[in-house]
Design a binder for these strands. Sequence first.
DNA 1: CGAGAATTTGACAAGTCTCAACACATGTGG
DNA 2: CCACATGTGTTGAGACTTGTCAAATTCTCG
Lengths: 241, 241
Amino acid sequence: MSVSAIGCALLARLSGFGEVGKKDADAILTVRGEVRNVRRLDDISRAGEAPKFSVVVLRGFLQRYVTRRDGSRQVHAFYIPTDAPSLETLNVDCLDTSLCALVNSTVGIIPHAELKALIRERPNVLDLGWRETLVQGAMFREWLMRNSRLTADAAMAHLFCEVFVRSRAAGLVDHNSCELPVTQETLADALGLTGVHVNRTLQALRETGLVDHKSGRLFIHDFKRLAGYADFDPAYLHLRN
Amino acid sequence: MSVSAIGCALLARLSGFGEVGKKDADAILTVRGEVRNVRRLDDISRAGEAPKFSVVVLRGFLQRYVTRRDGSRQVHAFYIPTDAPSLETLNVDCLDTSLCALVNSTVGIIPHAELKALIRERPNVLDLGWRETLVQGAMFREWLMRNSRLTADAAMAHLFCEVFVRSRAAGLVDHNSCELPVTQETLADALGLTGVHVNRTLQALRETGLVDHKSGRLFIHDFKRLAGYADFDPAYLHLRN
DNA sequence: CGAGAATTTGACAAGTCTCAACACATGTGG
DNA sequence: CCACATGTGTTGAGACTTGTCAAATTCTCG
């Protein structure tokens, strides 16, 4: 059995929120797929297309987004290594969102045919895929709450908490900081704000001393108080432990 | 074979966005479950609980929501007859949202044990459940965009379009109107606005002559122009035809 | 070093919220 | 049938948050 990097990332993700049996794990680990490098701002898939593959992030940082007719943009999710942004597209005819890299990244491309073969062999994997979709749904709901109910400063703090907790779960936190390689403009697209207002809000958060974001990195100086500031509760991420 | 009302609704829902094979359909139709009447504002399940059953709406109107510590509320979705709000809870340990009725309603309660038996017998049903979860995810994303990017009037028009299109797909539209039995306060909880502002916004929409909402019913006088007003594109609902 | 991108700043406009009061409908008990 | 309580819808005035626009500054990278 030859273990692939893609299989490795996929297994890390799927076992993040549920027990994965030995045989299923072995099958997942041998997923072949194709490793692809994507450059910053390259689209991996586009709204309107028919999906032909699913994606696992191996390195870098992606976002899922839509561009509206008037040019404004809404970011729906950020994806860090081991995330599987489009597992669910296996079941859909036409994509309604786009996926792009926010920094040069490496992704695993898993053709739907291969995914289907894996599921045929190990039906439990279907459960895991469903569960992954469901957890992403919970995250969308939290983003909805965040952008609808929180003021700009609390919303930004809340988003920072999410990125930090998910990075920690993926083993990507170094001391008290993690990657968040986005511009303030992108942050604005995620939070439903303006670039200008994000700038001012970030300055305000900076002054609290709880958190900072610079040169594409997030520095959490006091997670507990930041979580309190944002009323952040990680339950919706459905992480184990 | 004895066809149940619950099975009927479930099949209507699942076949709404994908072909369902004959044998699968037959199996779904015989789902037993339990028919339950719930009164207005009764919770069917609550955030924090461990889920034990899934739900199909047979009659009435439900919402999925969270209440925040400060008392504010975010509605994540409205559910009309044939919707299956919590199919996906089959795979989750702890609910992160609550489900309640907004008018006296009748729901089908399907114990997880029975659902699991159905899936064991007809594995394709798993696919359908996954797909249902995925479509709901697409809806959450659209709600996120709506509340983040649209002004109050466009957002309200957009929500009205969604309710109307989904009601039409479920065969619940009478001439040019459908049920939307919610107070302005509830509308505010869904749109991320204040009750007061919803009131004023609704008046503004009323004056356009495109749409009205009164005594729990939505009247669409000119769907096409309303959709234009809100830049509404139903693709995200993934309805067939 | 230069060019383009990203961040920062200021002044002002617009959208939405807050609070408080009032109007209207509904249903209940007397 | 009335009196009343309650929930819902409506209105007004003023405050606050966020957006808009335009320019200046700093950063990044070839």
